[in-house]
Lab assay of single mutants.
Amino acid sequence: MTEYKLVVVGAGGVGKSALTIQLIQNHFVDEYDPTIEDSYRKQVVIDGETCLLDILDTAGQEEYSAMRDQYMRTGEGFLCVFAINNTKSFEDIHHYREQIKRVKDSEDVPMVLVGNKCDLPSRTVDTKQAQDLARSYGIPFIETSAKTRQGVDDAFYTLVREIRKHKEKMSKDGKKKKKKSKTKCVIM
């Protein structure tokens, strides 16, 4: 069974824990209790493949930012979460993405942009803004509501699919490099 290491990042209060708990335990946590770091595991079937999701729910508070490099190193894919009623959390996505790329030393890291709290009427981040940002990053965008469960499975499952595509691409690139290195030079 394939294991996928997913990391949920975003500013404090955007609903990272609520999304994760909704996926794992099928219930909505409405009281806000700032996370330092929590880890969850769940076995699911995605596109006919049974897999184990190892999900790291991270601290959004700035005082825990020193811990970010460590979990970013171990993560295979990242859910970059903002709240649709919090423009600052949307603007912060850029910083999370840049930090992930720096730590992973790669421009090509599996990510999904997630606009959470889409059940709320007080939207300050337009869907088109988020779609445009995701398009500019070359990553999928999904709106979710941890409260109603809308888009929750889709967000995590899409990230797994992005990781699969990335692994497939990397193995193809690896095979191309191996083929090239088999060419021999004969000096007579």
Rank of each mutant, 00 (worst) to 15 (best):
D47P: 07
E49W: 05
E63M: 06
P34M: 07
D30T: 13
L56G: 03
L52R: 15
Y32N: 05
H27A: 15
L6I: 14
K5E: 07
T35K: 00
G60A: 01
V7N: 07
K42V: 09
N26V: 05
Q43F: 07
E62M: 06
D57G: 01
Y64E: 02
V44Q: 13
A59F: 01
N26L: 06
L19R: 00
D38A: 04
L52M: 15
L19C: 12
K16M: 04
V7F: 06
T35H: 02
E31W: 09
R41Y: 11
S17E: 00
Y40W: 03
L56M: 08
T50L: 10
G10C: 06
Y4A: 09
G12A: 13
D47G: 11
I55F: 08
T35F: 03
E62K: 06
I36G: 04
L53F: 12
H27I: 11
V7T: 12
C51D: 12
Y40S: 01
Q25V: 06
A59M: 00
E49I: 07
C51N: 12
V45C: 14
V7M: 07
T50W: 08
E62S: 07
V7H: 07
I24D: 15
I55Q: 04
C51K: 13
K16F: 00
D47W: 05
G15H: 02
L56C: 09
I46T: 11
I36F: 06
A18I: 06
A11I: 15
V44C: 13
E62W: 04
V8L: 09
I24V: 10
G13V: 11
Q43E: 14
Q43P: 12
K16Y: 00
Y4V: 12
V7S: 07
Q43K: 14
Y64S: 02
S39F: 04
I46V: 14
D47I: 03
I55W: 05
N26T: 08
L23M: 13
Y4S: 12
Y40K: 02
T35D: 00
D47C: 06
E62Y: 05
K5I: 02
N26D: 15
Q61D: 15
S17G: 03
I21H: 15
I21E: 15
V8W: 03
Y32G: 04
G48T: 09
E37K: 04
L19G: 15
I24L: 14
K42N: 11
V8I: 10
T20M: 07
D38I: 01
T50G: 10
S39E: 06
V14F: 09
A59R: 01
Q43M: 09
G12E: 15
E3I: 07
Y40A: 01
K16S: 13
H27Q: 14
